[in-house]
Structure formats: C-alpha cells, structure tokens
Design a protein around this nucleic acid. Structure first.
Lengths: 341, 341
DNA sequence: GTTTTTACCGAAAACGTTTTCGATAAACTT
DNA sequence: AAGTTTATCGAAAACGTTTTCGGTAAAAAC
C-alpha cells in the first residue's frame, strides 16, 4: 500500500541506500549485477522516487505556475494547451491558477506559487493590475518570470506578445485592398495596450494609403460585448451613411455587428465589409462567416514556455540572462464578411 | 536572493529552529514576546515554508492532478475552472495534463502524476481508453481517484456524471409542452454512452406523451459538425414535410441546422422548434438564439473536487471510503428557438 | 611479494520542515 | 523551605533523497 522507498529496497537486498540510489541512476561505480538486482526489485515494488524528497535535495521542483485571467476562454485555453504540451516535453508539470481579472486574486495566486517553490511562473496580467511589487517579489525569490499577452512593460522580464499594431494594420489594409474607402473602427477601452496598438495599426494603414483619418469613425467600446456590437452598429449607421468597412477590435463585437446588419438587410460584404480580431470559433459559423485576425494562442503558449525553460536553465547554470521581447506574427483568416481580392 | 529558512530566523534571533517553527504556528508553548519577534522577522525576510520539506514531513503534497482529453473545449474549460476554484478554497493546487484522446498518453500522464505524489487524481477518460490497469495502479499507490464525465463503470471509484437520459427527456418534453407533435432527433454515433442515453431520453419522452416513436425521424450523425447539421436538415426536410421540432444532440449541429432553416426562410420556432444540447456560448448569439440543455461543467468540476477532497481526508484519517455515484441534474436554457409556454 | 590500480560499496551530511519529549527556570503551593 | 506546577525553550529524530568522500578487496603491475 505504502509507496516503496530506497531504504526498503536496500534492506531487502542487503545493500546501502546510496548504492541503491546509484544503481537506479546508472552510476559507473555500481556493478552490473547489483544494478540488475536493484532495478528488478524496484520494478516489482513499483518504486517511484519521492518528488518532495528529490526537490528538497536538488532545489528544483520541475513544476511551473501559470496565472491567467480566465480559463473559460478560447484564446487562453489554446495558450494553456501550448504550454502544457511543451512543458511535458521537457519534463515539467504545470499548475494553473486563475486571477478572474482581479488584482487581489492575482497577488494571492502568485503567493501560492512562490510557496510551492515552482521553478518558474508564466503570467498574463489581470485587467485590474496596477501595481507590480508581487511580480518583483517573484524575481527576488529567484523564480524565473515570463509574461505573455497582457503584459506590463515596466516589469523587467522576458515577454511574449502579439504584434497587435501590425495585425491591425494588415486587417485594415485588407479592407482597403478589397476596395473599402470609408472604414470605421470599433475599438476597446483607452488604457489596455492591445486596444491602443490595434487603433494605431488601423490609423497607420489609413495614412499609408492616403486615406484621411477621421476620428468620428472611431467608436470606443467598453464591455466589448455582443450587445455593444449591435448598439454601436446602429449608432454608426445613424452617424454615417457612407461606410463601406468596419475593423472591429474583437470577434464577439463583430458578430453583434453582423447580426444588426443582417437584421437591416444590409449586404455583407457587398455594402459593408467586416473584419474582426481573435478568430473565435463561432466566427466560422456565423452567417456570413467572419474574416478575422487569428491570434496564435497555441504558438504563444509554446513560445512562452520555451523562453521560460531556457531562462530557468541558464539561471541554474549561473549564467546571465538577457530578457527578450518576442512579438508573434498573426495571420488573417479570410472568410465571407470581406470581399475577395 | 535565496528564500529564507527557519534556520536563518533562528540564528539571527538566537533561538532554536523548533521554537521558530512553533512560534510561526502559534503553539501555546511559545511566549508572546518571541512569537512577535519571530513573526516580524519572518515578515521582513519574506519567509515562506518550503513546500517540498513540508510535504516530505507531512506526507501530503496539497496538490491534485487533473487529466482530461482536451483543454480547448468549452465544457472542459468550465470543468477546469470549477475544479481550480474549489481546490484553491481548500488550499490545493491543480496540475493539469491532457490525454489528447489517446490511451497511451493518458497512461503516461497518470505515471507522471503518481511520480509527483499528488494527493488525488481527477480524470475524464480518453475515447481510446480500453484498459484500466493504469487507474488501478493509482489506487494501489494509495492515491485517491475520482472519475467524471467520461467514466468507466468497471473501475471501482467514485464518479460524477451528467444524467443524460433525463436531460434529453426534459428537452424533448419541452418541445412537446410547447405544442410539437412530430419531433425528429439528430443523434450522435452508436457507441458513446451519452449519445445512447440522450436517444433513450428522447424516446422515453415520446412514449410518456403517447406520441408514437418513429425510427425514421432519428438521424445518426458522425462528426457532429456544423456541416452535418446543415446536411441532415436538408435530408430531414426532404424526407418529412410535417416536422415541427428537432432535438439535436449538440449545439454545434443545431447551429448548422438553424443556418439551413434560416436560408430556406423557415420560421423558427413558428414552423420548426429547435432544441440543442451543451449550451455553447455561441448559442446565445446565433439568430434566433438557441434553446438548449445546459451541461453544468463548472458544477461538475466543483462536485468532483469536493468528492475527491472528502475521500482524501477520509483516507488520511484511516476511515473507510464508500464510493459514490453522483448524477448531476442539467437544466434547460429557454431561448428563442422554441416557443414560449 | 610488494605496490598500484581498479571495481565496488557504504557512511554520512545535507536539503527544510514538524513534532515529541525533556529540560530548565520561575512561579506557585502548602 | 520543600515540593509542585507552569511557562518557555531546545535537542533530536524523522521524512526520502543525492552526492561526496573514503574504504576495502580483488586484480593488475612491477
């Protein structure tokens, strides 16, 4: 019933604990005969080294922590998948915690992970996070930290993000390439970096094509919900009757917009083209299907873990770590809500 | 840089390790003065007990393992969320692993968790799992096991599942209650238990209302995709012109069906009512919004962890454990694709 | 036959806790 | 004043590893 230990193997075999330990790890100073003996008994006893004891001795837990704002979210679950698969590859396990977009909870989760002596932490910040001392505490404890997606530039560590500005540029450019001349933008709140960057990409694309930037075409949303998509589409149609394209900050809002346009029998993309952002699953299912920017969550997870892994390794070897900023390229998924080229 | 230890606190304060340990845990045989001293120093040094050392001493890792077929899935991510939040409440951390619906991988993940000496394991089986010796190994190692969602009746442990048959009964009953008389059913493949149970619930509801069961109204799908939803709707309309309701095995297919009906300008729910299963997010966003059966993933996660927790506790206290079978009640989400009562 | 090498093994410390069991001194009893 | 209680602390073992450093015997070398 109780798991077997080195001691058990040692005593039943009339050996010392050290010899058993070394036999199992193929040390050269153990004879082949005893190695065989030890390994066989270990097999039949179903011996597994006690992880806590190993960690205590070797100082590494082979475990990392992951803190995200919300598990039930297509993008984040893709990230999780990427991280888990990559971590498994390197023999690491992943403890997942959720901040629920709350700063307080985020702090608490970080605390838990530090207590657990994880070898590293991957984090995507909660919206509410305004102070970063808890993250500095992580670094101070000698734990490697890598931020992804929702980051804070001020924290000194490696980061993996999406090149939001370029993605937004490309999306807007695609609208222009397919003939749109009056392009509106539904943007997110003023503070989050990605909402800013997407707006800047939109603006840059206009200017790059000698299309005048008209601030009245930019609508600032708050909740980023389906309902807001409907509402601001109504507003937009009321304010401007010459719109032929909308670049929308996120797919859910875009779907709200499409629903509203459908209701009014406005033809997509013949009259108005729509392009979204994130490539939610339902975007391929709505009618018409939604062209959008694909956020490579899986890749982001993989990259983030790889970075973390490298830094953990370097730290162990006592080498210096130079923090990196990785910007992932996005790609555009062309569907039926924009015209073909 | 290095995390503080009891020893450090002890030496700088001129105390013994034991006293420091006891001071931090408010043992009665430590004076208030030294307690204060110790706690203050611990605070400033940012002392955290080394989890590995504690585990080694106390035999519990305060960590559980979770093995699921696929992370990127709305239902499973809800389950994950439920488990994590409940676990956090009890001071447990959750290590998540993925089987990718592969039996081999599932075995490997279980191995990893056993090595890690988790206190318990929660698992939803991969489709490919045909042998259960790896799960018996878990029990033999003294690790508590609870299965949920996709279970194997043959394995002797507690289980948490959804009452698919009753859910399907209720869904069909709702169609009948709102006036449907000729109700079709799009079912899943022949083998999975839930697909069987949902079919049986459908059939039972018909008989319960003296509606004759007509096998030609039951369509067996395979991929359970959006496209199949469209395809079989066409078939259904071709075969039967008197249909006034469809109970569909899963929301994605239902959305395919709605799309097809919309295209043909068949009014939902006036001409045909639709009810789905699973309550995917997009069901609240499609037009018309889809009535469906809500699978309480979050609740299932919570319940599963609670069960696991109780059994871990009992095992620790040396008490006997009586395995339970929990069947979770589903509820129907009424939206616009079915008529109001 | 003595020395040197080689092959094999074990003792012991260390990782950071928790907890039992004394030990000491001060404070009470009577 | 002697015994008894109370308050406060520390020594030490234990949890299960890993790894260094010797130690012994057999084999090899001279």
């Amino acid at each position: 019933m109780k798991p077997a230990t080195l001691k058990e193997i040692a005593t039943t075999l009339g050996l010392s604990i050290s010899t058993v330990s070394k036999a199992l790890k193929d040390y050269p100073d153990v004879s082949k005969k005893t190695k065989k003996l030890v390994k066989e008994l270990a097999e039949t006893l179903n011996y597994r080294p006690n992880a806590s004891a190993v960690n205590l001795r070797t100082k590494e837990s082979k475990t990392i922590g992951l803190v995200i704002p919300e598990v039930v979210h297509h993008f984040f679950s893709s990230v999780i998948k990427g991280i888990i698969s990559e971590a498994e590859d390197k023999g690491y396990l992943v403890i997942i915690l959720q901040s629920n977009e709350s700063f307080e909870l985020e702090k608490k989760q970080i605390e838990l992970l530090i207590n657990k002596q994880v070898d590293g932490i991957l984090i995507s910040l909660a919206n509410g996070t305004y102070d970063f001392s808890h993250l500095k505490a992580v670094m101070n404890q000698g734990i490697t930290l890598v931020m992804f997606d929702k980051i804070a530039k001020i924290v000194d560590c490696s980061k993996v993000i999406i090149d939001d500005q370029m993605a937004a540029f490309d999306a807007t450019q695609h609208l222009i390439d397919t003939g749109c001349k009056r392009i509106a933008h539904f943007r997110g709140p003023l503070t989050p970096q990605n909402s800013i960057d997407r707006f800047l990409g939109y603006k840059k694309a206009l200017l790059h094509n000698q299309i005048p930037y008209d601030p009245s075409l930019v609508y600032i949303l708050d909740a980023m919900s389906f309902e807001e998509g409907q509402h601001f589409t109504k507003e937009l149609l009321k304010d401007h009757d010459d719109i032929d394209g909308i670049f929308i900050n996120t797919d859910l809002v875009a779907i709200g917009s499409i629903t509203e346009l459908n209701k009014r029998n406005i033809k997509i993309p013949e009259q108005i083209s729509i392009i979204g952002f994130s490539n939610w699953f339902m975007s391929s299912v709505i009618s018409p299907t939604l062209s959008t920017v694909n956020q490579p969550g899986h890749l982001m997870g993989k990259k983030s873990f790889k970075l973390l892994y490298k830094e953990i390794k370097k730290r162990k070897e006592g080498k210096k770590i130079k923090f990196k900023n990785v910007e992932l390229k996005t790609d555009i998924i062309l569907r039926d809500s924009t015209k073909k080229i």
